[in-house]
Every structure is written in structure tokens, then in C-alpha cells.
Amino acid sequence: MLHRSGRTCWKRFAGVLIAGATASAALGIGMAQGALAASFLISGERFQVAADTLRARGVSIYPMIDVAKKGTLVPVVVLGFRRAYISGLCLSVELPVPVLGPYTLVLTGGERRRVEATNLFIDATSVSAAQANTTDIDIGVAAGAIRKGPINPGDRKSRFFDPNVFAQQAQSAFLTDVRVTSVAVTAGTLNIPGLNLRLEQGRHRCF
């Protein structure tokens, strides 16, 4: 029975989906497609995405398998948003530099005006939030039956996409103090006011 309304915490269910994604790695070997009909192999490097707040309309959560350039299979939970509004965005990835040691590429924005995105997909290996409120949520919907939120067009074509697997969808969501470890982020459009991109020596993670 699908729940047509209410509020719930995503942290528990993100953990369930990560476990489901790990189990689905045994399905076979294939290529996970990227968003908007553009397929790509991920680098396999995990990076951090943090936000003070994330407000979204049209939400989907489903398990998937990404494929790294060297052929490694990476189980992920895909967070999909038709429209997303983010304040206090931070993205960081560590880059080992021969001889010089570690450097960190850091991107920040959305401090005074919110970051806006459409058809945003975050391929995550872990997700947490201090508070997560949702409206009109369905838990346990089949991935192939998701209608409220988006499905990455490339994922739908992938042999790793199981239309019968456990998934979630919601009309809207509001999260605070968001912390995500991700291997890929794609968006139809992404507007970042106050963009600051810098390369810093040492380790300077978002969290």
C-alpha cells in the first residue's frame, strides 16, 4: 500500500537503498548511462557535496550501478530532483599531486542567493541530513513506476536499471545540513550565484 501523504526521514531509507544497490551488483556487467542522453564512465573518485539547505520539488530515490573507466562497478543511490534550490553549496575532491602531495579542489556558491538546478541527479554512496521533511511520499514504489520525481534517462536504458526494485518518490522535500558522498552529479541546468572554484594545497574537505 502506498502512502500518499506524510513526512519521513530519508536517512534510514537511504541506508536501505544502498544495501539494495550493493546486492544488485551481481546482476551482470554493463554500462551505466549518464543524464540527458550523454553517457559517460565515472572516474570512480568519491567527492563530497554539502549544503546548508536543500529544497526540492519532484523527488525520486532509487538504486543503481555506475561503471568506472577502469571497469569497476560502483553501487550508488540516485537522488533525483525535478527542481532543486540549494543554499550554502560546497563540493570538494582530493587530488593527489606527485611530489607536492595532496591538493583539494573546492567549489562553493549559493551563500547570498540560492543555487538553482533542474533535473538534478546525485549518484551517492552515503547520505545524511540533520532534518529531512517530505510531503506526499511513496515508500516502496517500484522504480519503473516513479512519476513524481525524475529518472535519469540514461539509467532507464541501462541493464542495471531494475524497474521492479524498491524505490521512493515524493512531491517535495526540505533537508538541512546535508552531507553526501558522491561519485557523479548531473543536471539539466545548474545556476550557481557567487561561484568560487579554487585549488588548495592539503586536505580541505567540505565535511
Score class of each variant (00 low, 15 high):
Leu2Arg: 12
Leu2Asp: 11
Leu2Ala: 10
Arg4Leu: 11
Ser5Glu: 07
Ser5Asp: 06
Ser5Met: 13
Arg7Gln: 13
Thr8Glu: 08
Lys11Asn: 02
Arg12Trp: 01
Ala19Asn: 03
Thr22Cys: 05
Thr22His: 04
Thr22Asp: 01
Thr22Gln: 05
Gly28Val: 14
Gly28Thr: 15
Gly28Cys: 02
Gly30Ala: 15
Gln33Leu: 11
Gly34Leu: 01
Leu36His: 08
Ala38Ile: 10
Ser39Phe: 08
Phe40Asn: 08
Leu41Ala: 15
Leu41Pro: 01
Gly44Ile: 04
Ala51Leu: 06
Thr53Trp: 00
Leu54Val: 11
Leu54Ser: 03
Leu54Gly: 04
Val59Thr: 08
Val59Gln: 04
Ser60Glu: 08
Ser60Gly: 13
Ser60Tyr: 11
Ile61Trp: 07
Ile61Cys: 03
Met64Ala: 09
Asp66Gly: 07
Gly71Tyr: 05
Gly71Lys: 01
Thr72Ile: 14
Thr72Ala: 10
Thr72Gln: 11
Leu73Cys: 07
Arg82Cys: 14
Arg82Gln: 15
Arg82Ile: 08
Tyr85His: 11
Tyr85Lys: 07
Ser87Asn: 11
Gly88Arg: 02
Gly88Pro: 13
Leu89Phe: 02
Cys90Thr: 01
Leu91Asp: 01
Leu91Ser: 03
Ser92Phe: 03
Val93Met: 11
Glu94Pro: 04
Val99Cys: 08
Pro102Asn: 15
Val106Asn: 00
Glu111Val: 15
Glu111Leu: 11
Arg113Met: 10
Val115Asn: 07
Leu120Arg: 12
Phe121Thr: 09
Ser126Pro: 05
Ser128Phe: 03
Ala130Pro: 00
Ala132Gln: 01
Thr134His: 02
Thr134Arg: 00
Asp136Phe: 06
Asp138Glu: 08
Ile139Lys: 01
Gly140Phe: 04
Arg147Ile: 12
Pro150His: 03
Asn152Lys: 14
Asn152Gln: 15
Pro153Val: 04
Pro153Ile: 07
Gly154Asn: 09
Arg156Leu: 12
Phe160Pro: 08
Phe160Leu: 02
Pro163Tyr: 14
Asn164Phe: 15
Asn164Glu: 13
Phe166Asn: 09
Gln168His: 06
Gln169Asp: 12
Gln171Lys: 10
Gln171Gly: 14
Ser172Lys: 14
Ala173Lys: 10
Phe174His: 09
Leu175Pro: 02
Thr176Ile: 04
Ala184Thr: 04
Ala184Trp: 00
Thr189Trp: 15
Leu190Ser: 12
Leu197Tyr: 09
Leu197Met: 11
Leu199Ser: 10
Leu199Glu: 08
Leu199Tyr: 07
Gly202Asn: 13
His204Gly: 12
Arg205Asn: 09
Arg205His: 11
Phe207Gln: 13
